Simulated assay, not measured.
Amino acid sequence: MRALFDVTVTEHPYRAVVAVSGELDVGTCPFVTEATDALSLRGQTLILELSGATFMDSTGLAMLLQLRERARHEDGRLEVCGIDEPVKRVLERTGAFPLFTTVPSL
């Protein structure tokens, strides 16, 4: 049985918070991409809140890297917060962890 998945967007002045719960994989990452694509990152901070993420595969990693590049290209900022073991493990094993600005929680 597949875990429940949810993505929630909350916009504030100068920042948006995208909270993800469930598995980040080939079946769910398109929903996160759709949600983030709808946001302007120009001069904004995008906070990707992942404390509810229960799993992340290479598709999730690719999505994070693409989002990081998009934020850089649009003069925005990406912060990843609430990184628990499932996500941290992938970021550390691939050497990608230092590429992201991380904060413990909101």
Rank of each mutant, 00 (worst) to 15 (best):
D84G: 13
E79N: 00
L24Y: 02
K88R: 15
E92G: 00
L41I: 03
L99Q: 12
P86C: 10
R2E: 10
R2K: 13
P104L: 09
E69H: 11
K88L: 14
F97L: 15
S40M: 01
C29W: 04
C81I: 13
R72W: 04
E85S: 13
L65D: 05
D6T: 13
T101E: 15
G43T: 02
C81H: 06
G95W: 06
L99S: 07
A62E: 12
E49S: 13
T10P: 00
E74I: 01
T94H: 08
D84C: 08
L41W: 06
L39Q: 05
T36R: 04
G43P: 02
T8K: 15
A35P: 05
V32F: 11
I47R: 15
V7A: 04
G43A: 05
L65R: 10
G43I: 02
T33M: 12
I47L: 15
G76M: 05
D57V: 08
H73V: 04
G52W: 11
M1D: 09
L99A: 12
S58T: 09
L106N: 02
G76P: 03
T102S: 12
R89E: 12
T94M: 06
P13K: 11
T101S: 13
S21N: 11
E79Y: 02
L64S: 03
S40G: 14
M56E: 04
P104A: 14
R77L: 04
V17K: 07
L41S: 01
P104K: 12
L48V: 08
V103K: 13
E79D: 10
T54W: 07
D84Y: 11
A71F: 05
S40I: 01
E92V: 14
P30Q: 11
F100Y: 08
A38Y: 05
P86A: 10
S58M: 06
L61A: 05
P30V: 09
R89C: 01
R89I: 01
G27I: 00
R15D: 06
R89Q: 12
P30F: 11
A19K: 14
A53L: 04
V26M: 14
M1W: 06
R70F: 07
R2G: 00
A3F: 05
R15Q: 14
A62F: 04
S40Y: 02
L61Y: 06
G60R: 10
S40N: 08
G76I: 04
T10G: 00
I83K: 10
T33C: 09
T101H: 14
H12E: 13
P104C: 03
L78S: 02
E92Y: 05
V20A: 04
A53F: 06
V20C: 05
T10W: 00
V87N: 07
V87L: 09
R93M: 15
H73I: 01
V87E: 03
E11W: 06
P86K: 12
S40A: 13
S58F: 06
R77Y: 01
S21I: 01
L64W: 06
E74P: 01
R93P: 00
L50Q: 08
G22R: 08
S21Q: 15
A62C: 07
G22W: 09
D75R: 10
